[in-house]
Design a protein around this nucleic acid. Structure first.
Lengths: 246, 246
DNA sequence: GTTTTTACTTGATTAATATCAACCCAAAGG
DNA sequence: CCTTTGGGTTGATATTAATCAAGTAAAAAC
């Protein structure tokens, strides 16, 4: 692991409050690894040996069943994934593949499990992280069950605009192919939906999104703080990275 | 609270391992309450003041958006709900209403939050509970995104048969109206689907389910341990209550 | 015991979404 | 440079699911 990796990791809510000694112990058994784009790092069903920390690049979490697959999330730096599986020492529920060249730190799950019994601050951080993740998935399930695909697209575009600082113009954080799968629809259907949404106050040209009539789009998307808000606590610095598709 | 309530609660994984003194402290500030059927106990968006423990009856967790609503879960004794909201001191993401006459114990969320910082065993239990809940919702989201409604119905019927001990005949644990909403479909569509599934090895007459051709039904449902299995650890006594629609 | 309510079902229709096929275009690779 | 690849779009069609509208049966209320 590179020395400059450590402060990045230490800055995460998950590791911020634990003792320095314990943090160093945990990191001493961890190691960084670089992956090329398009590589499968984790296969669903495999035993959860490592907590993954994304330092650079981007990782797609996806699920398979029968001969179908769908994108569940895209993880960007700096954040962790598959914490719950590691905690429970249970098989991964999702697979993970790199979208770009990606730098990952692997923390042995066994060390993680041993550590949270010894460091109260760490266990509190884990509790908060899991509760936040839990609630995030509940939000996502609510969106899937209560909204039509058109409404999901509209609220996604609106939410992204907020994450980008409320600007009415921004670029999509991921390929449309991925976005479609994340939103639970086919690429064709997303393409058509985006076209139709031009009548509802938003225009998407390539990866460029321009909100032309925020009121109209809001009326359609009906943003709801119990669905669309983020669970991640805002950074004191105010620099909460807009974690795309979390 | 009745004295016979305490051992029931103490038996839950969440409270099993904490110190007796701490358990008593937590319970001393809690109180039981009885609710008639059809009563809204929790409204989504409200501040999370209490962890709820269901001792008798049944509670529906549901979500609303725009003018639509859907069932997210049905909680039966003895178990808790809305732990994550209490932990994060955040608004409830779901509403809760009683389905029958229901006996509930309310544990003040502030006491809960104070306690897990002082009792390591309790914090470990919370971590496990949250991780399990997290993974449960991920499973549910996978099912929604990867399966058609027909496949969801088929796997639900098969999973319930397993929970009932592998028997080929059992009764539905909830009204079809609720089941439909839980599975993300309309009652009409569920009714039709059940009728059509008679050709695939299962017959549903009223609340009675009879699996007539398990192989055929399995071929359709394609049960997957990364979607359909339960996250709750099996009780040592082997008496893990089949928590319906968890 | 009768009325009322509510879950459930069935049929007809409409709306939403997926699938199939063709094509465009830009980026990557040779 | 040309070729190949893969994302994206568009159109036609098929499938799936929701909606609308009756109607039944059983339970709850009076």
């Amino acid at each position: 692991m590179r020395p400059e990796d450590l402060p990045e990791i230490r800055h995460l809510h998950l590791f911020r409050d634990m003792s320095q000694a314990n943090f160093e112990t945990l990191m001493s058994s961890s190691y960084a690894q670089n992956f090329p784009p398009g590589l499968d790092m984790v296969r669903q069903g495999d035993p959860s040996d490592f907590l993954h920390i994304v330092l650079e690049g981007a990782v797609e979490l996806y699920a398979k069943w029968a001969d179908r697959e769908c994108t569940m999330a895209v993880v960007r730096p700096v954040s962790t994934f598959i914490l719950a599986a590691c905690i429970r020492d249970a098989p991964y529920l999702m697979s993970a593949r790199t979208l770009e060249r990606t730098r990952i730190v692997l923390v042995p799950a066994s060390d993680l499990r041993a550590m949270f019994r010894r460091d109260t601050e760490f266990s509190v951080a884990i509790i908060n992280e899991l509760a936040a993740g839990y609630r995030s998935v509940v939000r996502s399930a609510k969106s899937l069950k209560l909204r039509t695909s058109r409404e999901r697209v509209a609220s996604f575009l609106l939410t992204q605009s907020m994450l980008a600082g409320g600007t009415s113009s921004y670029t999509l954080p991921v390929e449309k192919r991925l976005l479609a799968s994340y939103l639970g629809m086919t690429p064709e259907n997303l393409s058509r939906t985006l076209r139709l949404l031009e009548a509802d106050g938003v225009k998407v040209d390539g990866a460029r999104v321009i909100i032309t009539d925020r009121a109209k789009l809001t009326a359609l998307a009906k943003p709801d703080k119990l669905i669309d808000a983020s669970e991640t606590a805002i950074d004191q610095t105010g620099s909460s990275l807009p974690r795309a598709l979390e």
